[in-house]
Design a protein around this nucleic acid. Structure first.
Lengths: 350, 350
DNA sequence: CTGTTAGCGCTTTCAC
DNA sequence: GTGAAAGCGCTAACAG
């Protein structure tokens, strides 16, 4: 009932092999033959059987994209950019790759499971986005998995994630979270802030640690005192930002600034500051990280560090497809850009 | 070099068929045998060949999700919810479905191309999210494609999209965009507004048309005059909202409210209102649509219509997997809920 | 409950 | 430039 390549071959009066060759366009075929085949394909409304060709060719045209949370624009933007470069429709013929988006929810276990599932699909490439879980056992398990994938011919690219062990053959486009965190806090210090609350992301995450390290490095470099009470951990969402800010303000009502792990958290922080009857930035300055699209529309607009998410994703996609060379050493560090806006100002009593 | 099912069978001293059965868990196998097989799988570090099983079984465990723009949380939230229900890791064994997210960018052509690609993959199900392009030729082409997919055993679910022709066998979970638009405008009318600007989405989109119809129905029902000059079309992004608002205000500085096609557009509208030196809602009220997470953090918080995106996505996912019954007639209308917040108030001179 | 037997539909050497 | 033939690795009747 379903049309197969053999049917097309019969109709075009050629062998199945020839049909395969014109369909894949990776082999010389006489122009007249090609046209005859294409016509037959059309007339028969033939659709290639993906699994069958993947089986025979030992590779599929699926590209895996691992994200923590696809509902978060941070990941959505990267995923969209990656997808646009892996040659979806509109790309040159034959390069119709499909993106398999895997939501790990930040769980190490699910990350591994998805990697296995992608291995099972014989994915052409896998792009892992965002920070990694910091846990030796898990890191080793992931590295092992990546090695297996690479051995099976799957190209691995890390986008916005620290490099994996060199023997995994994974190309890494890493965000300079440490540097960004440092810039943000230095900006605040420059404004005169000395008592700053810090809302960190979930523990055991590279992104969380690096941003926090940047913050602390800035404090240390400028001799500004740190205080364990001024740091709180939470999820990367608005709710966590709201609650953490309330807690921070309760612990120390004298805080003049709140540094949030990312923009989403910062939005929650802004709400908490306002709900506490304080003004931004007059009473409390707030900063975020990432510069997601809505950040400029916060009131006042959020001071933050802009990460070129779309560019990074696009580049990762091209590298995954072998359409762009990997950076020297397989590692590139992508810096963020400090965006100073209305949510930060000099502290009142400075 | 790569381990196959036959290797596992040999090691476990059973037939390949038995191994297949324990792996798929859809057939009775003696507990002791199962365990032996599982052990062999483990020892050999065996990973099933997806394409091979898809070929043999004539169906894959891929589920396609068509979205206009995955970077937009409107789609990201639905996609995430769908994915969480199609039995990713954590689901019961054997139900490891992968989500293939396809970004159509709102292009009818790419939508069709992706549908073909999904057909090629023998996708188990396809979920089409968001509004459809309004164009007879295209609608017919899509319907034809859906029929073919359904014939091949692919389950089709529409999520947040108007029903397709009945013979496509597509289940539809439709958002009541018309009703939501009407509620919003009635709320404004109730407040005393009589001169309202409307920023519509792109033309030729069902969502755009329905929301606008709701707006106009409300105007008509209350005898409030409409004016062609008060409607502007644009993309569903902040920039479009910003520019459209400036244009609207230029055309009629007396406008007391701006109705935006969605929250993202509303954010841009708010910025434009403020940049024009006007206050929200004192001078101009602004409303959005969707109630995306950031909407409550706008200042003032956005009055909007909440769409249960996550619930709808989850339900679509379950229906696609056959884990929930389709609604009677294959169509369910999902209503939004009016969320009255600070961005709307009575007009000044009312 | 388990083994045997055929393919599923395509790609790919290897000849011609 | 094109054809023939041999699988790729798995599932699904059908027996037993």
């Amino acid at each position: 009932m379903t049309v197969t390549l053999a049917d097309v071959a019969a109709r075009a009066q050629v062998s199945p092999a020839t049909v395969s060759r014109v369909l894949n366009g990776n082999y010389p075929v006489a122009a007249s033959t090609r046209e005859r085949v294409l016509r037959a394909v059309d007339e028969l409304d033939y659709v290639l059987n993906g699994p069958a060709s993947a089986l025979a060719a030992a590779t599929s045209d699926l590209v895996g994209i691992l994200v923590n949370d696809i509902a978060d624009p941070f990941f959505g933007i990267m995923a969209g950019a990656i997808q646009s470069e892996i040659g979806g429709p509109g790309g040159r013929a034959g390069g119709e790759r499909l993106a398999v988006v895997c939501n790990t929810g930040g769980s190490a276990e699910r990350e591994l499971t998805y990697l296995t599932l992608l291995q099972r699909q014989r994915a052409a490439a896998v792009v892992l986005t965002g920070g990694a879980v910091e846990n030796t056992a898990h890191a080793e398990a992931v590295a092992t998995k990546l090695r297996k994938l690479a051995d099976a011919g799957t190209k691995i690219v890390l986008c916005g994630r620290p490099p994996a062990p060199a023997d995994t053959d994974a190309v890494a486009l890493t965000f300079d979270n440490r540097g960004g965190g440092q810039q943000l806090t230095e900006h605040l210090i420059g404004l005169g802030h000395r008592r700053m609350g810090y809302i960190a992301g979930p523990e055991e995450r590279t992104t969380t640690r690096h941003r926090l390290e940047g913050h602390r490095a800035a404090l240390a470099a400028h001799g500004v005192p740190d205080n364990p009470d001024w740091t709180v951990h939470g999820r990367y969402d608005r709710r966590a930002g709201y609650e953490a800010t309330l807690e921070l303000l309760r612990r120390d009502p004298e805080l003049t600034a709140v540094v949030a792990a990312n923009d989403t958290v910062a939005l929650g922080a802004c709400a908490a500051v306002r709900d506490s009857g304080l003004r931004i930035p007059d009473d409390v300055s707030v900063v975020g990280f990432d510069d997601l699209p809505f950040s400029i529309d916060a009131v006042p607009a959020l001071t933050t560090v802009r990460l070129p998410l779309a560019d990074a994703g696009a580049r990762a996609g091209r590298i995954a497809m072998g359409r762009e060379e990997a950076p020297p050493g397989g590692i590139a560090t992508i810096r963020g850009e400090l965006m100073v806006r209305g949510s930060t100002g000099a502290p009142k009593n400075s």
